[in-house]
Design a protein around this nucleic acid. Structure first.
Lengths: 197, 197, 197, 197
DNA sequence: AGGTAAACGAGACGGTACGTCTCGTCTTCCT
DNA sequence: AGGAAGACGAGACGTACCGTCTCGTTTACCT
């Protein structure tokens, strides 16, 4: 019994109105120009209601992401049986979305939240990163089962490298597709060791 | 001759004091919590002096980086001739530093800047990441020359994967060292090609 | 029969707890810093219970006064038969209490209420001042009966002058005791009439 | 040389605009409904500018009084040579103004300020009470010289009693004129001591 | 040497947003 | 129905910074 029991219960309608307002304003104005006052006003809520449930603006935006009101680029990973083609299709599509400035606005909120208290960071990982990470690892494992990826390397390592590259180059604003193709080839179908260059 | 000629010349001592203050405060407080007032106060300078020479906080911090006053706690990448051992030593040591809050502060500065104007973002990334990224790429190229790494994959791709993994796992707060070892092995010592190619 | 009759009867214990809390907090914090929330919390009552029975903070405090829970630190006015000595003893003792911050807190409550609606103001003044004012007037009347004070001046006027002097000098933070002695002498033992009347 | 010397000097225009705004708003809305935000907005000033120079709303209003922008009832004390008539005329006129609710609004600000830090209270006394108190004492002394008031009582005592009565009855909202007449008569022309009632 | 002019430290200015506090109402469960 | 608990919309509070604007002062170059 962790719950308190008396008192007016939290209003779900208000909670959603706040998250919706945060999502809308982030998309319209960009993360930096969103204010708590504006979120409250747009949501028809009091500021205290926001501060009662969220510790910072970044957490409100992060919750809007979790709630699905503010979409990160969808990263549905296909499974056609051809791991290499699937990964290339996925990274190419993902990379294309990374150039979207609205995406960077959201990423900024998430990174801000991620550098905050451990508890908040973990929550974000669970709700935002894991839904992308786990299917990717699973797909890589199926590729290993199919003999398309060496079992000498952990699927997690490859997933880290792929997601990390996307993150790194997105933040650095470097071009992406070719790079991703190269590393995928390197990991999946390594050439014979060079003997004489 | 665009320059005016009379008047008191710009004070180099003040310029450096401002950049040093910006660097110190960014490391101590994190990019978001650095204020122009604090920089001015710490540097013993007037705010107007800062605004006279820089357009925004991000430009001051970028200049501090250029000046070499603010760095990632980057480690020297050894070159013993054994690429695998060198990378493992470097990634292990780097991963250990990822727990350092100063690292996260700088990463935050980068991400914050990344969502700002293209020009600011590029300046910061160039000068913060390059001192780490370029030597890494160079070392990988030497490894390729020595036949320790396939030439079928670009050195940049491997560098992206390594740095990206560090960045990703740092932000996601996942454990690091083992993972790094695995991916290095995968890239350097590829397994036999899958049976059905 | 104006009253409804069904339902749970009003809790007397809660009513008193609220008034006691209001009195205590007014004394401790001063009228301005008392909040309805704090009263409710201290009384172990719900805010709605307060709003159900009182229209405003001033009314709660007024009721606390009526209930005798909040008083000026009034002193008993002695009656030894010697009006002059009695008044001097009382004013000297009262003046000493004027330095007490609790006194100023109550005065502030009165002044705050005085600027509000007529009804609230009257209630507070009646009940806070009267317990001091009425005995003083009564004592002065007995002095008049005993020939110690002229009947040409109303007892109320003298009471006003005495209490007013205390109030004025307390607010102006001027020294008090000697002054009080002087005015008492002036009123009780009038000098010979001026030569040219 | 107690003053600091550098930096932009305080703007006198802004200072006056703030006091004028405070005066106007107090008159229009009443002391309670004046907000610092409204003063700042009306004055075209920033809130911080107000907080930089005044500790509380009551001090701003008090300064507006001192500056003559928010008038207390003028208490010009006539000197026709007839002390009794002069005092009665003055108290009657003063009492009439005391019923004005705008007066009570200002008094509330002053009392609030008077119950604050010693330094603020002293300032108020010097600038607000003394300009009324001192001429009154002086007039009473001239009355003593003319034999219209006993020299056995200090002029200050009488002034205390008169001002105190006005203050007390104004705050208590009790009727005034008759009472004031009575006490003046008692102090100025005492009847012969009663022998047989 | 004296004059001109830009840069300097200092800090007040009009603003925006913050995060907190209090109000008076509303909503639930418990008695 | 009364009451405790406590969430709610509203909005004022006092603070922190922003970027701009005077000030008086300092330090060069130019007569």
């Amino acid at each position: 019994m962790t719950a308190t029991r008396t008192g007016r219960p939290r209003s779900e309608a208000t909670r959603l109105a706040i998250l919706q307002a945060a999502a809308t304003l982030t998309t319209e104005l960009g993360y930096d120009h969103v204010t708590i006052d504006a979120i409250a006003s747009r949501a028809g809520a009091g500021k205290q209601t926001i501060y009662r449930w969220w510790s910072a603006k970044s957490m409100v935006v992060a919750d809007a992401v979790i709630e699905g009101l503010l979409r990160l680029p969808a990263l549905d990973l296909p499974d056609t049986g051809d791991l290499s083609a699937d990964l290339k299709a996925w990274t190419t599509a993902s990379a294309a979305k990374m150039g979207d400035s609205r995406f960077l606005q959201v990423v900024r909120a998430l990174v801000t939240a991620a550098t905050g208290p451990e508890q908040d960071a973990s929550r974000l990982y669970e709700h935002i990163m894991r839904p992308t990470y786990e299917p990717l690892v699973a797909r890589l494992r199926r590729g290993q089962d199919a003999g398309q990826l060496s079992t000498a390397v952990s699927a997690e390592s490859v997933a880290d490298a792929l997601l990390g590259t996307l993150l790194f180059r997105a933040l650095a604003r470097l071009p992406m597709p070719e790079t991703m193709t190269g590393i995928i080839d390197a990991l999946l179908a390594p050439p014979p060791p060079p003997s004489s260059s």
